[in-house]
Design a protein around this nucleic acid. Structure first.
Lengths: 205, 205, 205, 205
DNA sequence: ATATAAACGAGACGGTACGTCTAGTCTTCGC
DNA sequence: GCGAAGACTAGACGTACCGTCTCGTTTATAT
């Protein structure tokens, strides 16, 4: 079965694509540049992907650079804090930051990338649902809490802070955000007390 | 004093810029196209703005299309709900949606637009702070709550849901999001009780 | 003996070559197009003929479209007239005209086709020499007449008129040309009389 | 009045065009190559001429490389001989030969060049008509002789011999051809007589 | 009113990249 | 082991915008 699903040097092409995306941003990412850097002829790229976003989509799909582990710290608050920290890292560390910014920024421009991003978010949500299932099993989650809403607020806050406001992320940002989104550390009868008195976990930002 | 701060037909140019941005997106917005549509020579635009983002920045600054009123409903929950609804509207209605998506999407690509967006978010925050001052005066706001964090989570959630996930916004999305971010309707010492029994305000999404 | 001297579908390939040559001219004749029309892979053609002119040469050699009969009317003037008429027909009739024009036009560009054309002209001359032998036997031909010169002037005049000047060929063109090239219809002593009185054969163009 | 009728470096462009045509032939003449050699951007050429033949037409029109003087030797036979010699020279000398061959060869492929060639031939004929007028005045020309026919046979013969047959041109080719086309040195009423006796002017090739 | 300085229009220009086409070469697989 | 399929390198095609430039022409004060 020959059934080739891409050019022989897909790897080099994807690599060049992502590097150039990170280096120059989506707008200045050119197919000629990718071909050049990948040591491949321009036509080879056009044979397999009809457009820049299509190529980028394939490159992003093929290279799971934006995957990060789902935490399991034993508490919802801990999991959400870890999630925020991971997200901040991804959007801050130079290796992935430019990539994520470029990809997500370009998504609002282009239907093909938009579809890719949709899938990415759906996958992320599916992967993170266990956090909430475990929290519910532990009794940490009030009835009717919508996990997607929590995740979106969490991711959105990080997004706005890091990429739109471009503010430096403070030490306790992750913890504060987690606390905002799951204030009821313990919903057990004895929980009310400690929370009121526990200033360290309160919102002090 | 001539002291012109722009070409004579700034208005037409800005108008053309924003229309074309909405129609085609940032990437396919060209200065030649703007000049054409504005009935102005290309050189005239280059004389005043050195680049596409600079022009777009001026156009967005000159045309306050993204301004929306700050609500004052009498309760923090109500204000936040209204805020969410306004945001969703801006990102959903065709007139402003394309514009906002394009502008904010492009911001992650371009330093000049990024600065503009930063200013925009700072202004928004300043305008929305009274909501929290009033809430604090009413005793609705727990000590240590960071208004910026709330605003960012709120705006970010809407952003993610509408522009990245591209999901339709449900009826009760605004209320649920507001509830997530300000659960303590009453901050009276007996707060725990009423909240649990108040099904209508609970998360039922 | 397999001893194949070409691909199995030589016929289709030659046919496609000549058809496309006639349809589009030499320049726009492409090997890809030939392969397509012949229902054959491009590589198959390249395996057997190294270049476009080589293929065209083979196709023209294989298909004797440009052969026309050598006339024998009983007089040199009649033979030359018939020759001109035949030539005009070949260069005028749509079936062969495009082909001849393309082939001969391309010959001045390409050494391979040039060789082919040389051979063609040599063959033609050899075939037409009997005309002059018969004429000499009849005493119609002055001593020292160079048949090749006559043939070249004859063919060249038709060529210039039809393909370079692109003028419509008048009724009496063939006769006038023949008369120009062999004015001594009869060199017999009695010939002078009738010719002078025969206005229809004189140059009246 | 600026009224530019071409790019600023027309001269360099035309020069490059003709040189490359002579070097490579029409088919392998590329606009990119011309731009390169002329030190001009490709777009500049496309701005002024829509196609390769259009450019070539302009270049040939602008550079009268194919102009040759019309002879006036005092006799029709002498003029025709000189004409043949000039033609042979043009098609033989390396400077103009490649050019003429390429241009005329390509003409049979391309309508735009064909039109150019038609004009060229019409101009040539107009320029050469005086030869025949003078000959008629001298009484060298039989009534009813069609000058265009003579010219076409003359030019065609040279064309066929030099470019299609690719034979070396013999010493006496010009004279023989002229003699073939104007045998009647004396058109005196007693024409028949002198001609037969005039062996020196007869065809001896 | 008119000089004068700016802003303007027109549009040529060198460039970069686009996305397409064809040429020829090279690889791989099936009969 | 030949021949078909087709991926590949190479390079020209013609187009769209880019950002720069020059050159006359408004246009609008500032005498």
């Amino acid at each position: 079965m020959p059934m080739q699903s891409g050019p022989r040097r897909s790897a080099e092409i994807f690599d060049a694509t992502l590097r150039l995306l990170a280096e120059r941003g989506y707008e200045r990412l050119t197919i000629e540049g990718v071909a050049d850097r990948a040591g491949v002829n321009k036509t080879t790229i056009y044979r397999w992907w009809p457009s820049k976003p299509a190529l980028l989509g394939a490159a992003l799909g093929g290279a799971p650079l934006l995957r990060f582990a789902v935490p399991d710290t034993g508490s919802l608050h801990g999991d959400l804090t870890a999630l925020v920290r991971a997200l901040v890292d991804v959007l801050t560390e130079s290796s992935s930051a430019a990539l994520a910014a470029a990809a997500l920024g370009a998504a609002s421009q282009n239907p093909e990338l938009a579809a890719l991003v949709q899938t990415f978010f759906a996958d992320r949500l599916a992967a993170e649902l266990p956090i909430f299932r475990r929290a519910a099993a532990r009794g940490e989650l009030p009835d009717g809490t919508d996990p997607m809403l929590v995740i979106d607020a969490l991711a959105g806050a990080v997004w706005v802070r890091v990429l739109l406001r471009r503010l430096p992320v403070e030490e306790d940002f992750a913890e504060n955000l987690a606390t905002l989104l799951c204030p009821r550390v313990g919903t057990s009868p004895a929980a009310g007390g400690p929370r009121d008195t526990d200033g360290t976990r309160g919102r002090t930002g």
